[in-house]
């Protein structure tokens, strides 16, 4: 045990905490400074977590098998970039993206169909709501059995997982346009499709983006978990489950860091598009200050 390192961690933590407490109490007039503080405070919190992690694992001599310090994980990322890239390609570019687009678009199309045919809506929606609460990842072994070990089976799992949130959200989004707006469209003598494209789909956009955000995480989870049931010898899920068995925990953490980065970027891209598309929505307008 190294008390000095622990002390450094403690001092850093208290210092960062005090600084954050100080910063959030500032009330500057300048908008740029407000924005900078809003950005800096969470970043400092994140850095503090990393510092505490680093110094506590080193200070208490925690076995690297249990929890490697961040510096060790970073070193591992640098030396195994090619492995990480290959896994990223297999899992993210092939399984997640393809499955995400297929699942979301089919959910969207079925939602439009359900909107057009009230019978379908009344029949499908309760089932869709029910299925959304089910542990759908469980279909992974079945999909692996049907579609083989390669990425096709992961795509299938991702499609099944992303379909229902999209369906349920789009259907409730299509109900979001108010009666008054629909009446206005009627006075314009607009057809079903005209109303759909110029009024109801834009009104449904916040709901659709909500589904896209939920699905971005679900897709990654689905693809990784499906790989636990069988893969060719490449892929993030495969790497995680085998390297854990070989006690290469630092490589596992490196893989998780990549997955986290990919997940966050995926989510961030969708959030950015949402801000551009639903610029009229109160939550976005409020964000602009």
């Amino acid at each position: 045990m190294n008390t000095n390192l622990l002390m450094i961690a403690l001092v850093f933590w208290l210092g960062a905490w005090a600084l954050n407490e100080f910063l959030v109490r500032l009330t500057p007039q300048n908008q740029t400074i407000v924005k900078a503080i809003n950005l800096f405070v969470p970043v400092l919190f994140g850095i503090t977590l990393l510092v505490i992690w680093e110094f506590v694992t080193r200070g208490l001599n925690v076995s690297p098998i249990l929890l490697p310090p961040p510096s060790m994980i970073w070193a591992r990322i640098l030396v195994s970039l090619h492995i990480l890239w290959a896994d990223f390609q297999q899992t993210f570019l092939k399984s997640v993206l393809v499955g995400f687009f297929a699942g979301c678009s089919s959910g969207f199309l079925v939602a439009i169909a359900a909107d057009r045919v009230p019978f379908l809506k009344r029949g499908l929606l309760p089932i869709g709501n029910f299925v959304s609460a089910l542990p759908i990842v469980g279909v992974a072994p079945i999909m692996v059995m049907w579609f083989g070990f390669d990425y096709q089976s992961k795509v299938a799992v991702v499609v099944v997982m992303t379909f229902f949130p999209m369906l349920v959200n789009t259907v409730s989004g299509l109900a979001a346009a108010s009666v008054m707006e629909k009446d206005l469209m009627r006075t314009y003598a607009s057809s079903y499709w005209q109303t759909l494209f110029s009024l109801r789909l834009p009104a449904a956009a916040p709901f659709i983006f909500n589904a896209l955000k939920i699905n971005s995480t679900l897709a990654l989870i689905g693809a990784i978990v499906a790989e636990f049931f069988g893969t060719p010898i490449v892929g993030m899920g495969f790497r995680i489950s085998t390297e854990v068995g070989r006690m290469n925990v630092d490589l596992v953490w490196a893989e998780i860091a990549v997955a986290a980065l990919a997940g966050t970027c995926f989510y961030g891209v969708i959030a950015l598009i949402e801000r551009k598309v639903t610029f009229w929505h109160p939550s976005v307008r409020a964000g602009r200050g």
Binding site: N20, L23, V24, N38, V41, P42, L44, F45, G46, L49, V137, S216, T217, L220, I221, I224, V225, M236, G237, I240, E255, I256, A259, A260, G263, T264, F266, Y267
Partner: peptide, 19 residues
């Protein structure tokens, strides 16, 4: 609120089941 909320939200974009 300021320091943790963004991380709580970010923590969910991580495919945690991988861990």
């Amino acid at each position: 609120d300021k320091s943790m909320m963004p991380w709580i939200i970010a923590s969910q974009t991580i495919p945690i089941l991988a861990i």
